[in-house]
Design a protein around this nucleic acid. Structure first.
Lengths: 218, 218
DNA sequence: AAAAATTTTTAGACACATCTAAAAAATTGA
DNA sequence: TCAATTTTTTAGATGTGTCTAAAAATTTTT
């Protein structure tokens, strides 16, 4: 079994690998883990000793098969617990992250699978992210950022890239939630801000918002 | 906040305090924690520095008000999670301990209280132990051990003292569960074994069994 | 009340995960 | 290309929680 810290590193490397195909740099990992580069080097060596990552000095780090499986298992638990908190305990989507960060480390295969069943095998968490099944498979969503779209296109909101409480609270305040239909009325060349129509109301959103909202076109 | 280890020590001291009114000895605590007396001395000093226990060298340890509150909070979480596992996820009562030992350390007041509500404020866990409410109050059961009773008395099984998987599996195998009515047909002077009647069937149980079953008389 | 046995504490060490400061390697760019 | 900058690693230290071995205190036995 892996320590809490090891699991957090594996998860962070997993998340960074999409952006750093050729290996996750020490500094990037330090930034993600909110720690120092020297601490990262220490931990990465330990993970490498356990064959959870492939690591060569000065060349960044990549997950091994075992490391990837461990990371996916942690992510599966994190997202299942988020569904539990929202669907069963009435948490709002901006309140679940911190608690799920703790719950994701509970070690019990039976618990994870029974929870999955209890929740009726959800495919996505409250932020629209896919939930791996018990074999580690999950759908790679065909979703894009709202900022990719142009004037007059219509789409459905399916996920958030930034799931910080601040961003989610902004969305709540503006009645933006997953499943909502959005039409782009106007897109400003100068700052990429958009005028969108949702539920019959118009709303202006900045580029920072549209680059953090996943949508699918219809 | 307290570390995982600190919480486990506080819980252990709480459980031992009923037996050691004048202070829990270092050795007793080492036995309970499955560790060495020297480790206990170290930890007890740290707990004392944080005013969670009152400790005087060679005189054992007692919980302070703050320490007792912390212990009760952990016990509340442990027992609520046990109810969740059995009632919602279909665990058997002999499978919950290990998982609840992990879940009891999750830090979120909202989670604990919402879970309590979701479970409809249960008063007892699957082993018959009382669950503290959000203020830390819990009923001190008026229950006694089956071994206290004599021939021809009738009672209802309300709890187990030993909640090890082995004992619980023995009870399952013999169809003994909480709520069952038991009548003492015979009690052997020599070894305190009993012949009991339950659901119309007779069953012989050893003293080791009857000293681990809590009952209430009717 | 000593001696013997037991309990408890101290001393010193170790593993994990972290840190700061300094050195080494790699990259950038003039 | 070689000096400057950035990135990464090493070296040495810290805090938590544990251990073994030995010393000290307490309790039990004779």
């Amino acid at each position: 079994m892996f320590s809490l810290s090891e699991e957090n590193y594996l998860k962070a490397i997993f998340h960074l690998e999409t952006a750093y195909k050729s290996g996750v740099s020490t500094n990037a990992l330090a930034e993600e883990m909110q720690t120092k580069a020297s601490s990262v080097t220490d931990m990465v060596k330990r993970l490498s000793d356990k064959d959870l990552v492939n690591y060569k000095k000065y060349q960044g780090v990549k997950l091994s098969e075992a490391g990837r499986n461990a990371a996916i298992e942690v992510i599966r638990k994190h997202r299942l617990w988020e569904v539990f908190l929202v669907d069963k305990l009435g948490f709002n989507w901006d309140e679940v992250h911190e608690v799920a960060e703790q719950l994701e480390h509970i070690k019990s295969e039976k618990l994870t699978n029974e929870l999955d069943k209890f929740l009726e095998f959800p495919k996505r968490d409250p932020h629209g992210d896919p939930i791996p099944d018990s074999k580690g498979n999950f759908s790679v969503a065909n979703r894009v950022l709202l900022s990719e779209l142009e004037k007059d296109e219509t789409c459905i909101c399916v996920g958030v890239k930034d799931s910080s409480a601040e961003f989610l609270q902004y969305l709540d305040k503006n009645r933006i939630s997953l499943g909502k239909e959005i039409r782009i009325i106007e897109k400003e060349d100068f700052d990429q801000s958009m005028l969108i129509k949702m539920d019959g109301n118009e709303l202006r959103i900045s580029n920072q918002i549209s680059t953090n909202l996943f949508i699918k076109t219809i």
